[in-house]
Design a protein around this nucleic acid. Structure first.
Length: 280
DNA sequence: CTCAGTGTTCAGTG
DNA sequence: TCACTGAACACTGA
């Protein structure tokens, strides 16, 4: 379920588990879709024996900086994630594992790394919408070079953000979802931020007032920092968040905890939850 | 059984 | 050029 907070949680997990470690074994599925045409042999050659220097992220893209290039770059698609098994303890980030599923490596494992302290790192992706690429200079190469500002670390100052919105006629939600605009914002974050900022998701971006953009910016920052602080664990998100309606969408009358009726429509090709009485 | 989905890309349309 | 639509990808869970 990967948007920026989940990818950031995975980055922090990798930082703890893998940075400073050497890769002593590599198991790689033969999957030209997930691996973007790169053969398992090439992946092995790139990773085996390397030391991990850092784990980096931009938007929803994550990569490992190694002591020699190329470096592996990950995108989680709709259902991908990183799992780590420490020497002693199981650690599980993204995908909820079914109860009583003792499997290791986990189902849908695409890439399996063993590190020199005995811990293991797995990239898993049930739907195969995720990607693993090898890059010599990730920030300078696509797809990462095509991304806009990282919505967590690089949120532009109000004036600049207003100027960027001023150039766009598309619905504000579509603009937020555009990764070449704000990298890392996905469907639930866009809905959450627009709800909290009280802005109708269909509003054309260039019609937003300075006050509205100010609210949008403040809510984007607070939603992201809160979600990251809570380890991207939706169960711990504040009860007032619209996010929780994701799980009750099939209710006859989905409501927020404030008793607001939630409506659904399609904006930017995506299902959009919103509250008509609040968002203008 | 059917259908939508926390994402992206591409072809086709207006 | 911009913006939108639908399809495709492959699987899960409601």
């Amino acid at each position: 379920m990967p948007e920026l907070p989940e990818v950031e949680a995975a980055r922090r997990l990798l930082t703890r588990a893998a940075v400073g470690r050497r890769i002593v074994a590599v198991r790689c599925a033969h999957d030209p879709i997930v691996f973007q045409g790169v053969s398992p042999a090439r992946v092995r050659r790139a990773l085996l024996g390397r030391r991990v220097v850092a784990a980096r992220r931009h938007g929803k893209h994550l990569w490992l900086e190694l002591d020699r290039r190329p470096w592996p770059c990950f995108h989680f698609g709709m259902a991908g994630g990183i799992e780590v098994r420490g020497r002693r303890r199981h650690r599980l980030v993204m995908e909820g594992r079914r109860n009583h599923e003792p499997l290791w490596p986990p189902r849908f494992c695409r890439l399996h790394l063993v590190l020199d302290d005995g811990s293991e790192v797995v990239f898993r992706d049930a739907r195969r919408l995720g990607r693993v690429r090898l890059r010599h200079d990730p920030p300078a190469e696509p797809p990462i070079s095509l991304l806009g500002f990282d919505a967590l670390r690089e949120l532009p100052p109000l004036r600049r953000l207003a100027a960027l919105f001023g150039e766009r006629a598309a619905p504000v939600k579509a603009v937020l979802l555009d990764q070449s605009f704000s990298a890392g914002v996905g469907n639930w974050i866009a809905d959450e931020v627009l709800y909290q900022a009280r802005i109708d998701p269909r509003r054309r971006a260039h019609t937003l007032t300075a006050a509205e953009i100010g609210r949008l910016r403040a809510r984007l920052r607070s939603v992201l920092t809160t979600a990251v602080r809570l380890g991207a664990d939706g169960d711990r998100f504040p009860p007032k968040w619209l996010f929780h309606t994701r799980w009750s969408k099939r209710d006859r009358r989905p409501m927020t905890v404030r008793g607001e009726r939630i409506r659904y429509l399609t904006v930017g090709g995506r299902t959009t939850a919103w509250v008509a009485e609040v968002q203008r």
